[in-house]
Lab assay of single mutants.
Amino acid sequence: MTEYKLVVVGAGGVGKSALTIQLIQNHFVDEYDPTIEDSYRKQVVIDGETCLLDILDTAGQEEYSAMRDQYMRTGEGFLCVFAINNTKSFEDIHHYREQIKRVKDSEDVPMVLVGNKCDLPSRTVDTKQAQDLARSYGIPFIETSAKTRQGVDDAFYTLVREIRKHKEKMSKDGKKKKKKSKTKCVIM
Results as ranks from 00 to 15, higher is better:
Phe78Met: 10
Lys88Tyr: 03
Gly15Gln: 03
Cys118Pro: 11
Asp119Tyr: 05
Gly75Ile: 04
Phe141Cys: 08
Lys117Asp: 12
Val7Cys: 06
Tyr157Gln: 09
Tyr64Ile: 02
Val9Leu: 13
Ser122His: 09
Leu6Cys: 11
Gln25Glu: 05
Arg41Ala: 04
Gly15Glu: 01
Thr58Glu: 05
Val114Leu: 08
Ala130Trp: 14
Lys117Ser: 12
Glu98Gly: 04
Gly60Val: 00
Ala83Tyr: 02
Asp126Asn: 08
Val9Gly: 07
Phe156Cys: 10
Gly10Met: 01
Thr124Tyr: 09
Asp92Tyr: 04
Arg73Ala: 11
Phe90Tyr: 08
Glu107Gln: 04
Gly75Tyr: 05
Cys80Thr: 04
Ser106Asp: 13
Leu53Asp: 01
Asp33Trp: 01
Lys180Ser: 02
Glu107Asn: 10
Ser65Cys: 05
Met170Asp: 12
Asp54Gly: 09
Asp38Cys: 00
Lys177Ala: 14
Tyr4Asn: 07
Gln22Ser: 06
Thr20Leu: 03
Gly75Arg: 04
Ile93Arg: 15
Met72Arg: 08
Asp119His: 03
Lys184Gly: 11
Gly13Thr: 10
Leu120Gln: 13
Glu107Ala: 09
Cys185Trp: 05
Asp47Asn: 11
Ile36Asp: 00
Gln25Lys: 03
Gln61His: 11
Gly115Lys: 03
Ala83Asp: 15
Asp126Cys: 08
Leu23Lys: 15
Arg135Phe: 04
Val186Leu: 09
Ile84Asn: 15
Tyr4Glu: 10
Met67His: 04
Glu3Ser: 10
Val125Met: 10
Cys80Tyr: 06
Gly13Gln: 13
Arg68Ala: 07
Ala11Asn: 05
Leu113Lys: 02
Ser106Phe: 10
Ser17Val: 00
Lys172Ser: 11
Val14Lys: 13
Arg164Glu: 08
Asp173His: 15
Gln22Asp: 13
Phe78Cys: 02
Asp173Glu: 06
Tyr157Pro: 08
Glu76His: 11
Phe28Thr: 01
Lys5Asn: 08
Ser136Asn: 05
Val29Cys: 11
Pro34Asp: 00
Gln22Asn: 10
Lys16Met: 01
Asp57Val: 00
Asp47Pro: 06
Ala18Asn: 15
Ser122Thr: 11
Leu19Met: 11
Leu159Gln: 03
Asp153Trp: 04
Gln61Asn: 15
Gln131Cys: 06
Glu37Arg: 00
Val7Asn: 05
Asp173Asn: 11
Ser39Val: 02
Ser39Gln: 10
Met67Ser: 03
Glu76Pro: 03
Asp30Val: 10
Gly15Ile: 09
Lys177Tyr: 03
Lys167Leu: 05
Arg123Lys: 11
Lys165Gly: 08
Pro121Gly: 10
Asp38Glu: 00
Gln22Gly: 04
Leu113Pro: 01
Gly13Asp: 10
Ile84Leu: 13
Lys176Leu: 06
